[in-house]
Design a protein around this nucleic acid. Sequence first.
DNA 1: GGAATGATGTTTCATATGAAACGAAAGTCA
DNA 2: TGACTTTCGTTTCATATGAAACATCATTCC
Lengths: 174, 174
Amino acid sequence: MFHMKRKSTAGDAAPTEAGEPFRLEAFLPYRLSVTANRMSRAFARAYAERFGLSIPEWRVMAVLGTGGPLTAAAIVERTAMDKVKVSRAVAALEAKGFLARRPHPEDRRSALLELAGPGIEVFRAIVPLARALEAELTAVLGPEDRALLSSLLARLDAHLAGLGDLALDAGDPG
Amino acid sequence: MFHMKRKSTAGDAAPTEAGEPFRLEAFLPYRLSVTANRMSRAFARAYAERFGLSIPEWRVMAVLGTGGPLTAAAIVERTAMDKVKVSRAVAALEAKGFLARRPHPEDRRSALLELAGPGIEVFRAIVPLARALEAELTAVLGPEDRALLSSLLARLDAHLAGLGDLALDAGDPG
DNA sequence: GGAATGATGTTTCATATGAAACGAAAGTCA
DNA sequence: TGACTTTCGTTTCATATGAAACATCATTCC
């Protein structure tokens, strides 16, 4: 049989060509997931060993450490984490005395959160270590490829976030 | 201007520069994790809705569908999944009649696994859909950027796998 | 051969996750 | 005002995860 009709447009000089046997290693969702998990595991271990923090906790600290006081909803937005996860991370950090809640002046359901006490110094200590570990783990890529990867991921992520919940099946979003 | 030595056009040259305030969005492990999770969620939903498969189950089918009969250990190797996860995925697929176990001729602890019955047709049906969804979700990147991303991830992943468990912190090769 | 050690795959158990239900507080509308 | 609807954050619950213990078979070394 002839395999004609290939290369329909730019869209299909694709990740995996239609006639070929399927290879998991060349499948982008797989690649992405495996690499991200490896990376996450390394960081999770480092944070846990040195600071007793989970990744969600570290992320909350990361946004609180740079942005001012934030509500939980704002943290959800900036960390791209589930609100349940944020709620639990905040509770854990509060229990450790790493952050403080202050009543929100305009909404009694909510609270303003910010780093406090030991949390402030831990944040200062963690940032350079996180950067160093990032540098070590991504050492194979030079600075340029690292930047390239980051920018590709950002573009892809924005697209995925745009697709959002809609149209993942059924309709053709375009 | 004077100190425009390396303005961030195509992204920051270094992962995160030492003097700057920490930005989670520019932190590669974060980017990677968020993007991978979004992608995974989309696929998980698609596989579940259309075929009643989890991602681990789909991955096992993916390697069995192309490679011949494999042992569980071989599947672990090729899918980069935990052996517990593989064990459970295999059990689930067997319960659905999607794969068959055959005693391993040279090792009575092990078994040879291969797609069977409905599993074969489901595999054939799923591959083009997986490819189509991949294409849709990565549509923002052109074919070239997609290939680039894939190759960057592969390099990074190989490096991470190389670091393995060792040397992530000071040194306890255990 | 037969103990000691190693490999294979399953089960146990403690933790992590997020969808959905929830109470409390705003916001909306008549 | 007094119903409604919506939003904020927490809690519940059912599921997913993997480290460690396990049973089973294989291999090594004496």
